[in-house]
Structures are given as C-alpha cells and as structure tokens.
C-alpha cells in the first residue's frame, strides 16, 4: 500500500507534459484535470489522482502555470490552473523532445 505501483503508470517526467497539454486546451481545477487526462488517454494512464498536486506545484514554481481560486459550477471553491506564455513555450520544447524520444525508440524497436 505504501507504494501504489501499478501497470500503466505514467512514465517518469511525462506527467508535467500531460498536465501542460491538458491545461493548454482549457484552464481547470485539479479534479477536472485528473479526469481530463484520464479521458484524453482513454483511461490508458492509471494516474493516482493525487500525484498531479506535487507536479502542479512544481509547474507553478517555474511560472509555467497560473493559479486562481474560483467557484465551480456547483458553487464550490476550487483552485483553477491555467497555462502561461512561458508554459506554452516550455510545452513546445518538451513536446519536441518527446517526439524525438518516440522516434528514437521506434527506430530501435523496429530495427531488424
């Protein structure tokens, strides 16, 4: 229980990219973000919902995302996250490096 490891866990370091991508579509709060990532990945990623919070703090400290306390449609106070210009630039860089990584992996794995 201490280490809730499971198959399909998000590759180390990619959670940041997933969060930036999800936020680039629309600002949202933590719960929404967790569900959005699951939904976009068609439930392929079994992200521990709580794991986004440390990541969000990390991204906020790099000023890649902004935060704001707002009311939800159900009148509940929640913290909303939005991507910043710096965040978009960073996402571009990360995305490019991710693509390179995928291409390189494919090259290796497809080798005869």
């Amino acid at each position: 229980m201490a280490n809730a490891e499971s198959t399909g866990q998000v590759l180390q370091g990619t959670l940041d990219l997933l969060i930036l991508k999800a936020l680039s579509l629309a600002p949202m709060h933590g719960w929404g973000l967790a569900h959005r990532i699951q939904e976009l990945s068609q439930d392929a990623f079994q992200v521990g919902q709580g794991s986004i919070y440390p990541a969000l703090i990390r991204l906020e400290q790099r000023r890649w995302i902004n935060t704001e306390w707002r009311s939800t449609e159900n009148n509940r106070r929640a913290k909303y996250y939005a991507i910043t210009a710096a965040g978009r630039r960073a996402m571009g860089v990360e995305l490019a490096s991710w693509r390179r990584f995928v291409v390189a992996m494919d090259l290796v794995l497809d080798a005869r």
Binding site: G48, G50, S51, Q61
Partner: peptide
C-alpha cells in the same frame, strides 16, 4: 483509492516547494 496516499503527495508537494 483513486487519489493515492494523501500523506505521500503532501510530502512530495512539500519537497517540491
């Protein structure tokens, strides 16, 4: 269960901060 260990994320968040 879906959220995972509250204490663990709290500590990770603290470490990040």
């Amino acid at each position: 269960a879906a959220f995972g260990g509250v204490q663990r994320y709290r500590e990770e968040a603290n470490d990040a901060r």
